[in-house]
Amino acid sequence: MNHETACRSDHDAVPDPVRSTEQLDRSEALRLLGSVSLGRIVFTHQALPAIRPVNHVVEGEDVVVRLDEGASRASLVAMPGTFGIVLAYEADAIDPDTHLGWSVVVIGYGELVVNRNEAERLAALLGPWMNQPMADLLRIRSELVTGFRLGPEPRPISAAG
């Protein structure tokens, strides 16, 4: 036993690196996404990739996020009447100790929520998570939803056991 092993306590144990990966179907991925409130929006800003943490709510198959007043609307939303700008949204719940959990990515077109009644209803569901004024609500119309779950790899049963 070397010094490093002797000094390592149980809570410092290295997690088992063997994982199984299960692809999630669309409905399970959206259900899991709806079980957490924070994720990351991915977009292009000044021709470079940008990622920002935001809170979200899943409505049907769409993801709705709040944009703070400093958000670059030009990078996130197309001009009215155009098809929209492609965005990605990612959220996960992966245990830092066991490395088990899931990750979901939604890719779709972004559009501002402009209907006042809809915006008020959604804003009530999306309380700000930062101490910053919120300017707009952005709906990402999901075109592609992918996800995976990381699980422990099943161990073969020993003949001696």
Rank of each mutant, 00 (worst) to 15 (best):
M1F: 07
N2L: 15
N2V: 00
H3P: 04
A6R: 06
R8W: 00
S9T: 10
D10P: 13
H11R: 09
A13M: 07
V14S: 06
P15V: 02
D16Q: 06
V18K: 01
R19E: 08
S20H: 09
E22W: 14
D25L: 01
D25G: 01
R31L: 08
R31G: 02
G34F: 08
G34K: 00
G34C: 03
L38Q: 09
L38T: 12
G39C: 01
G39Y: 07
R40N: 01
V42L: 03
V42N: 11
T44F: 15
T44P: 04
H45Q: 11
Q46W: 13
Q46T: 10
I51N: 06
P53S: 02
V57T: 13
V57K: 00
V58K: 02
E59L: 06
E61V: 12
V63W: 04
V64L: 12
V64Y: 15
V64T: 04
V65T: 03
V65A: 08
L67G: 11
D68V: 10
D68W: 11
A71N: 14
R73H: 13
A74C: 07
A74M: 10
L76S: 01
L76E: 08
L76R: 01
A78R: 00
P80H: 05
G81T: 07
G81N: 05
G81H: 03
T82K: 05
G84P: 01
L87R: 04
A88K: 09
E90C: 07
A91Y: 03
A91S: 13
A91V: 03
D92R: 00
D95C: 00
D97M: 10
H99Q: 15
G101A: 09
S103W: 07
V104L: 05
V106S: 13
Y109A: 13
Y109F: 03
G110P: 06
E111F: 11
L112M: 12
L112N: 04
L112C: 01
N115R: 04
A124C: 04
L125R: 12
L126K: 01
W129N: 13
N131V: 10
Q132T: 11
P133E: 15
M134N: 14
D136G: 07
L137F: 07
S142T: 12
S142C: 08
S142F: 12
S142K: 05
E143T: 04
E143Y: 10
V145Q: 07
T146H: 13
G147Y: 10
G147V: 11
F148A: 14
G151F: 02
P152T: 15
E153T: 15
E153Y: 12
I157M: 03
I157K: 05
S158K: 00
S158F: 00
A159E: 12
